[in-house]
Each structure stands twice: as C-alpha cells, then as structure tokens.
Design a binder for these strands. Structure first.
Lengths: 203, 203
DNA sequence: CCGCCGCTGAACTGAACGGTCTATGTTTAG
DNA sequence: CTAAACATAGACCGTTCAGTTCAGCGGCGG
C-alpha cells in the first residue's frame, strides 16, 4: 500500500500505533496527550513525530485501523441459506453483542464525538460499520425473498428496520450509563426484534 | 429551589447561562473557551466566575437546562384517545423531526461525547429524553390495549421498539454526515415504522 | 451625598500541551 | 576500526487556557 510505505519507516511503528490506539480509545482525541501516548507506547516523542507529522494524522490512522477492524468483525457472514428465523436471530445476536460490548461502545462514542472535527472519521465509521451490516442484511433478505421465504418490498428499509430493532433500548442504556443491561434483557430484545420483523415480512 | 438560590446572585445570571449555552452547543465542552463564553454573553470573566465556581459546573448547569427543555418538548402529549395509526404516525413524526433537527443532533452528540467525563449529564439526558418518550408511548399502548385496539403483551419492549423504528437509518445518517436525509425518506421511515408496528401488534 | 454592591476589563499565574531541537546512542558500509 | 547515517530520549519552547486579582465605575437605597 502506497500510504503505508510513506509512513512506515522503523521497527517501532506498530508500537506507536498500538499505544495511540489504547490512549485514544480511553481518552478521546482532545483528552489524549501526545506524552501519554509516547509513555504508553514506550517510545520517545521524536520517534512518534518521525512516523506521524502531527497528532491529527496519528488519530486518523488509528481511527482508520479501528474502522477496518470493525468491518472485519462485521463481515462474518450471515448464513444465506438458513431459514429466516434462524438467520435473523443469529444476526441479531451479533449486532447486540457488538453494541453492548465495551469496544463497540467506545468506538461509537469517539466517532460521534469527533466526526464534527473529523468528517472523514464519521464517514469511514458509517461505511465500515452500519453500512456493511445493512448490505449483508439486504443480501440475505433479497435471497430469502427470492426463495419465497419472506415478502419484503422495500429491502433497504427492511434491513435498516431490523438493525434498528436490535438496538432497542440497549444502545441508549449502555451509552448513557443509566443501568447495565442484563443478558436476559438482551435476549428479550433479540426475540422481540425477530418476532416483529417476521410479523411484518413473513409470507 | 435551593440550588438555584445558592447560585443566582445578580442580574446577568441568565445572560451568562445563555452565552454558555450557545458556545457549548456549538463547540462542545473542551472546544469552548471561557473567554469565548464571556464574549458571547457580553459579560466579564469575573462576573462569570462569581456565578459559577468553574467551567465544569457551568457546563453541568447548561446541560441540565437543555435536558429540561428537551423534556418539555417531548411532553407534548400523544392524543391518548386517537386510533393507533393516527396516534403512532403523529408520534413518529415528532420523534423523527427531533432526531433530524440540528438541535436534537447537537444535544445528542454532546451527551454521547461528554457522558464519560460527566456521568450525570448522560443520565439526565437519558431520563429526560428517551425515557420520557418511552413512558408516553407506554401510556398510550396501555390505553389502546385496554380499549382492544392493540394487542401488546410486553408494553415497555413495544414502546422501545417503536421509538427505535423511527430512527431507522435517519439517526446514523445525520450523525455521521454520510448523506443528508430527504423529507421523502423521513416519510418513508415513518410509514414503515407504523406499518411494521401494526403488523405485529394490531388486533 | 455617601457607601454599598454588582459589574468591568485587563493583567497575571500556573499548568498543560503540541511540536522542535540537541545531545547521545546504535547500526551499517567501507 | 571508523565514519557517516539514522534512531532515540527528553529537555525545551511558544502558546493556549482555566481561574485569580484588583483598581475602578455606575446605579441605588438611606
């Protein structure tokens, strides 16, 4: 990759990136100081600045890597041939577990906070997260509809609706720290999402 | 109110709060400088610090006021006696218009970003926003179910589901600035939400 | 007319932070 | 073995910013 070649110059490159990841994820962009990052990475400031021209670019690189990681996690495909209830339940479980995970929450929080300052980060997150999920779901819905297992007229809308149903209450709760989400509640949300979706789109 | 009495001392109090509101909403907590706020409020720094011991407390006060304002807006009640389709459509229109509004988006963004540093802000937002909507919806669903117009078993879940369906794609899109949301799309989301909800819970 | 009180505006402090510079290893080529 | 080239640590610099201080101003009650 051209950009990576431009950046990567020494053996401590990954160390810097890893330290930056830790600190940025913990403290956000403004909250993280470059000194913290060097300490965390076990690297000197000059070393850091030899790899990245400034803090902003370092953050963008970390964000890009996180988005890619998220895309990888999301791409674990839905079983395209499974019956609707099974396929949707499995998908819902994946989505809810990401949303309630510490990692998912931190990424979301930072992207929401910083995509004002860094529009690229917001777009990258959206495209490598929600959009991937939406596309996967849409693919499945298309296949299932073709097979006559579902009757979906507006596929993109249905995909969005299902993804959103999986979040019901869970995302807000974890994000604003009102009360922790019990596993039973997650399960209830999943079943509720699948039931509602099938009530609307089953043949 | 006891706390207000402790704080309020002079005629420029509201001026300070208003200026702080403007700047915090525009720039967030870290992004806002106290000097900016005094300039915006047309007030000296000493005056500001005579009302609020520090920036953090000032922010909390602004956030509390914003949450209250949001609660007021949300409280405009659903017509409890209307038929499901009309009542739900009206509710959906209120919810979507708040979500896609500049104001709603800013409040949400700031709360998500800062509720790590200020857990109180997160909780206040949740309780005076999503929770109020949820309660209103639950009240309506209870009434409509009693009237035999709907058949909802798990009322809190159904309320969350409906609120969430209204966000489908709209919130993520506006938040991450991928592409603006056309009014037609909002309408499509509203109709989709109501259709799906009724498919699941109509008698 | 006096004294009080809220307010002003500007100067100041101390700390934090992004970014740079220099002195000191460390590696590699000849 | 030596010297050039590069990597590194961390002191250092300039700036920004929260919060303080203080001398003075204007209006209002007594």
């Amino acid at each position: 990759m051209a950009t990576a070649t431009v950046l990567k110059k020494g053996r401590k490159f990954d160390q810097v990136l890893e330290g930056a990841r830790t600190v940025f994820m913990r403290d956000g962009f403004e909250g993280a100081s470059v000194d913290d990052i060097t300490r965390e990475a076990g690297v000197s400031k000059a070393t850091l600045y030899s790899y990245f021209p400034d803090k902003r670019l370092l953050f963008l690189e970390v964000a890009r890597a996180e988005c890619a990681r998220q895309a990888d996690a999301a791409i674990q495909t839905i079983d395209m041939t499974a019956a609707p209830r099974e396929a949707l339940t499995a998908a819902a479980r994946r989505i809810t577990s990401f949303i309630t995970s510490d990692f998912g929450q931190r990424v979301y929080r930072i992207c929401v906070a910083e995509c004002d300052r860094f529009p690229d980060v917001g777009r990258a997150f959206y495209q490598s997260g929600p959009l991937v999920v939406r596309q996967r779901l849409a693919d499945y819905l298309t296949a299932a509809t073709a097979r006559g297992q579902l009757a979906v007229d507006d596929i993109p809308l249905a995909a969005d609706q299902f993804a959103e149903l999986c979040k019901a209450n869970l995302q807000a709760r974890t994000l604003f720290g009102a009360t922790p989400c019990a596993p039973a509640e997650v399960e209830r949300t999943i079943v509720g999402a699948v039931d509602m979706f099938l009530a609307r789109y089953a043949v």
